[in-house]
């Protein structure tokens, strides 16, 4: 059984002395996420804030030097959140071809068993989900996607595995994902795209940005 950590009040917590996490209350949905994007833009301009990195209905602030009075920042953040309207920017629509199953998506059958659906149906629900880039993060170019059909949600694995290839398309809890570079991952691997998701010599280096709409297309399904 998956229990979402839904908050009733905004929560602000220091991560050490130069990082702070703001977590929005309410549902894990696009409206709240659009408000996070607005909040991110606002706080990025605050003095002393080096960067604001939005993630899933939350945003992490990084500071050049430790803030003297985190309580005051907390008050300012909550006030800024309370007036933050959903960001209305139209994202780009990006088609992403995926090979599902086989060595590309070794967890397809496990996801199907968990969802009590045939694997073909899992692929159909995934390609028909209207997935939006909620955040870029974790590792270079990696995207977190909202809009996953809840019927194919699946908890993260108990122990992360060592090597997910670049372009791995996966499911972690209620979230969709697509990896930008090779490395370990605790998510469930559904398939893989050949699109270059990250390039350090480009500015910005990531293919996708928050708000972009991803349309997964089944190039091939290996059962």
């Amino acid at each position: 059984m998956l229990v979402d950590n839904q908050l009733t009040q905004p929560r602000v917590s220091m991560l050490g002395t130069t990082h702070l996490l703001f977590e929005a209350p309410g549902d894990f949905d696009l409206t709240n996420q659009r408000r996070i994007w607005t909040l991110t833009r606002v706080v990025s301009a605050w003095p002393g804030v080096r960067e604001a990195a939005p993630c899933m209905t939350n945003v992490m602030l990084t500071f050049d030097t430790p803030p003297e009075d985190p309580d005051r920042i907390e008050e300012q953040l909550v006030a800024a959140w309370n007036v933050a309207e959903p960001d209305q920017t139209e994202g780009r629509v990006v088609d992403v071809p995926v090979i599902y199953g086989g060595e590309y998506g070794p967890d397809l059958h496990e996801i199907a068993a968990h969802a009590k659906l045939p694997p073909e149906e899992v692929v159909r629900l995934h390609t028909e989900s209207r997935m939006i880039v909620f955040a870029v993060g974790s590792h270079p170019g990696n995207v977190y996607l909202g809009g996953l059909d809840p019927r194919i949600a699946m908890p993260r694995r108990k122990v992360p595995r060592i090597r997910a290839e670049a372009g791995t398309v996966s499911i972690g809890g209620f979230q969709g994902g697509m990896g930008g570079t090779v490395g370990p991952s605790g998510w469930n691997w559904l398939g893989r795209t050949t699109l270059p998701v990250f390039d350090p010599h480009q500015d910005p280096p990531a293919l996708l940005a928050p708000g972009d709409i991803v349309r997964f297309r089944a190039e091939r399904v290996i059962l």
């Binding site: 979402d4 950590n5 990195a53 209620f174």
Partner: peptide, 21 residues
């Protein structure tokens, strides 16, 4: 005491996480 499926969030060096193990 209570298990939650967390929403992904920013993490930095020094954070002590506890996975399900």
């Amino acid at each position: 005491a209570k298990r939650l499926e967390m929403r992904s969030h920013g993490i930095v060096p020094g954070i002590v996480q506890v996975p399900p193990s």
